[in-house]
């Protein structure tokens, strides 16, 4: 009997993550997917058909038979959508790359800092999370606007004499994404670098590498799992980002998050915005699967 209880509890424990995924990911996804197959209607909720499980099996089948792929056809036909997807991906890729260029040296510096000050540095990287994301992005408006802090400073330093137009451009979006997601990239790289045995670098130098070559041949490849994890952690949320392009980007900036938002709130077209969301998810599933593969591989080689 005790054995039975033990086996049941252990199964229960194992099933928790699956249960979590089922309740908070799969079921919502199915609901969104279902809505994406519906049609707009002036009603509450604003689409039809509405599947009412309490009305019996027949009515459910009846509503399912009314589902159509029209919204997806619409997405393909209107260039606005695929342009928004492509532009989102491009912006996400560029900003991931920029974040990497800035974040790697930060992570490297932290990992090579004296062990006594590392916790403080780590704290400083995490510190911005203590204020709201929205407020921090808002603050950038104050910095980047034509009469903002950055322009005031540059003009005071006589670097420029007319204010730079940064706000409401893609540059502002890049700045916003790099700033907001930097910790997500720094932390995994830092943890990869920190657990690396420094005598490996010494061994490489001993075998004839200059410090720079030792970095390229040893340190960088060994930090690769951290780099990959960090890049995905930036790339995936950046693709669907809404707040940053909305606040910092201009009206010409096309990003799928913004498109989705306007479909949902301005047009009240739930079915189309659901279709946009489903496609976005499918687009992101590819890098997520790649990410998980590389994680699994990294864990494998660590054993």
């Amino acid at each position: 009997m005790q054995k039975l209880i033990a086996s049941v509890t252990s199964r229960l424990v194992i099933s928790i993550p699956y249960l979590w995924l089922l309740v908070f990911f799969l079921i919502p996804f199915i609901i969104v997917f279902k809505i994406s197959l519906s049609e707009v209607a002036m009603a509450i909720p604003p689409y039809t058909p509405v599947v009412d499980i309490t009305a019996g099996i027949k009515s459910v089948f009846n509503s399912i038979s009314q589902f159509s792929w029209d919204n997806y056809v619409w997405l393909v036909e209107d260039p606005l959508y695929y342009k928004a997807y492509i532009s989102s991906l491009v912006i996400a890729i560029v900003s991931t790359f920029l974040t990497l260029i800035i974040g790697y040296p930060i992570a490297y510096g932290m990992a090579r800092a004296p062990a006594t000050i590392r916790p403080t540095l780590l704290m400083l990287v995490i510190l911005p999370f203590w204020t709201s994301f929205l407020i921090r992005v808002y603050a950038w408006i104050g910095i980047l606007k034509p009469e903002g802090l950055l322009n005031q400073f540059l003009m005071w330093a006589n670097v420029i004499d007319t204010p730079l137009n940064i706000l409401n451009t893609n540059t502002a979006i890049f700045i916003g994404i790099v700033y907001s997601y930097l910790p997500f990239l720094v932390l995994p790289i830092y943890s990869a670098l920190e657990k690396m045995d420094y005598s490996l670098v010494e061994a490489a130098e001993d075998l004839g590498c200059t410090p720079l070559m030792a970095f390229w041949k040893i340190t960088f490849p060994l930090s690769m799992p951290g780099v990959i994890a960090g890049c995905f952690l930036v790339f995936i949320p950046a693709t669907g980002e809404f707040v940053i392009p909305d606040l910092l980007g201009g009206s010409s900036t096309l990003m799928i998050g913004k498109t989705l938002w306007s479909e949902f709130f301005s047009n009240r077209d739930w079915p189309v915005s659901s279709a946009v969301a489903v496609i976005l998810l499918l687009l992101l599933v590819v890098p997520i699967v790649l990410f998980q593969r590389s994680e699994a591989k990294a864990q494998e080689s660590e054993k």
Binding site: S199, A203, D206, L207, I218, L222, S301
Partner: peptide, 13 residues
């Protein structure tokens, strides 16, 4: 000179 390290320091990758 070449050194053999106390921890061997083999390149794991």
């Amino acid at each position: 000179v070449n050194m053999m390290f106390q921890s061997y320091a083999l390149f794991p990758h």
